[in-house]
Nucleic acid binder design. Structure first.
Lengths: 250, 250
DNA sequence: GTATAGATCTCGTAA
DNA sequence: TTACGAGGTCTATAC
């Protein structure tokens, strides 16, 4: 262990033997540290799907909340993983480090067999986790509530997340002629799925109110794809171009 | 550097000073290594959206393909990140390590300001990345192509990924009475979106063939939600329960 | 490059 | 627990 006194729980081993690695990984898991293992390994997964991964050098991260990540040198996404709330375990199998992570409901199991080890580390991390994010769909909704005319002159918002038999409507209101308006919000360019959502909500509200007057449906997004625009036209739905504040997306 | 001769490019520093950390991170980026920095930091992001993250201890990974990940002690997903093909940079700002990652199209910038450092590592990784995965939607499709009666007796598949004005149909064929059948596949329990997809494809095929006879639409999935089942009924669409091979999902 | 949909999606929230 | 939809989704594939 390096500098253990300066930061209790912080420990690293470079090119350790498998037994020493097993001991450190197990200690790190027990102590609630974030544990990393870098080395040549194979990976097996079985659960919602099943996979095998042949030998290669990878970076394995075990989080104290039970998440596990296997990263190769490429890609933003891990090549294999386990979600939070799994149980991690480090053992020796045929004198080699074996890292496993398991959960029930659904039953899922991840096994990482190490052939050789470049590095093992245990890092006791504390974090307040107070990410402040802007440019979301919620920000777009606030923008409209502050200035409803951005949708159209005379638009009056009456409710957000209004429940219908088809789900919650992002924004529900009336136009200047008191016609019911259902608004679906997207923080980025909208495709066919967004039109499908809006259509379901409009149908559900029409049925719910068994309205005499037509219910209008408006998709609010920075832009729409051609196919989405065609689908909107087919269903008599409308589009208003509007971006959330904060981002650079247009 | 530890054991540099045994594995060229492998280097680690525990509780380094910021200048030494900057040099090692920069060298790791230049050499095409996977670089990790663990320490107390703040994070700023601006691009498709914008975010700030106050001080906390995190694990930062810089991949040689240009991806960057900032992980806290919780969650499967990184709290901040950059996708592959970004340019990484390590500098000193007011004598503290500053790690940045940037790309154009869309313009996105990530800044990690370190207050203190627990560990820095550079790991030269090679990987063939030959993940063999089963239990996917493609496997479900193969299962049906091998035994079309799993959909229904007399079903004849004619094409996969058949193009329509509404997009590609997962599976296209005929029933025993030579009626056109459009099949939408889902590897797991299907919800309202899946019904919307199937409906769009059925509409598009009906229009495309301006068929005299009705076009049937069948959703094939392990199960459906109640709301999806209702939507299927409303649109005269059908459901067949079938799971992909390989997984444990039911 | 854009568009479309899959994913062991993950994640939060509401019923 | 399940369902539903957002996400800086990411990723692969077709256009």
């Amino acid at each position: 262990m390096t500098d253990a006194e300066a930061t209790p729980g912080l420990a690293t081993l470079t090119r350790p033997d498998h037994a020493a690695a097993r001991d450190l990984v197990a200690a790190g898991i027990d102590s609630g540290a974030l544990v990393t293992v870098v080395g040549r390994c194979t990976v097996e997964y079985e659960g919602r799907a099943a996979s095998t991964l042949g030998p290669g050098e990878r970076h394995v991260m075990l989080k104290p909340d039970g998440a596990a990540l296997v990263h190769t040198d490429e890609g933003q996404q891990p090549v294999n993983w386990q979600p939070p709330d799994c149980d991690h375990e480090a053992t020796l199998a045929e004198d080699r480090l074996l890292v496993e992570s398991h959960r029930e409901t659904p039953a899922e199991h991840l096994r990482v067999h190490f052939e050789s080890l470049l590095h093992v580390g245990t890092y006791p991390l504390t974090d307040e986790r107070d990410l402040a994010l802007e440019g979301t769909e919620a920000d777009l909704r606030e923008r409209i509530l502050n200035e409803p005319a951005l949708v159209e002159s005379g638009f009056v918002p009456l409710a957000t997340e209004r429940q219908t038999p088809a789900g919650a409507v992002d924004l529900f209101g009336e136009d200047r002629d008191e016609r019911t308006v259902v608004v679906e919000l997207k923080r980025r360019r909208a495709g066919p799925d967004a039109v499908g959502q809006l259509g379901r909500y409009v149908d559900a509200v029409e049925r719910d109110l068994h309205a005499e007057t037509e219910v209008r449906g408006i998709l609010v997004a920075p832009s729409v794809t051609d196919r989405a625009r065609r689908l909107l036209a087919e269903r008599g739905l409308e589009f208003v171009a509007l971006s959330p504040p904060g981002g650079r997306e247009r």
